[in-house]
Amino acid sequence: MVDKSSQFLTFTIANEHFGMDLHQTREIIEYAGITQVPLMPQFISGVINLRGEVVPVIDLSVRLGRQPITIHKRTCVIVIELHTSEQHCVLGLLADAVNEVIDISASNIEDAPAFGAKIRAEFIQGIAKKDDEFIVLLDAEKTLSPRELAHLVEAELQ
């Protein structure tokens, strides 16, 4: 059986390495300021103007249960495009740094540990190993599910 390999965009948040399926990432842009949206929970950094489109930006660090990202010179926004059954959704992710695009074959992806992981298991597509480093492959649709995010926002506002 052919060992399918997929491409992943890898990036760093607070010294941890993450990866996301490449064909869900649309582009990467420099962080150039952000407009905060009133009353939003912390994981929503705000919105940005992406060539005329108003795109929400998520602080993945907070989403994953950690401290908010500190903005610095290399901070960038990874623009993700999700096609869910309901709609097509564009989101931005704050990242400390974007690394390379790598090829990972299916055989090199392990399932996420059932427990003990610092991140919720359903967010994780799998764990990959590259050059002695572990990369947590995030499931974009689950991590950034607009529905779930909307629920979180709703919960926060009540």
Partner: peptide, 16 residues
């Protein structure tokens, strides 16, 4: 603003 902000009251959209 998109579905994520649906629950946000008082703001009905954004503009550039």
């Amino acid at each position: 603003l998109g579905p994520i902000f649906k629950a946000l009251k008082g703001i009905g959209g954004s503009s550039l």
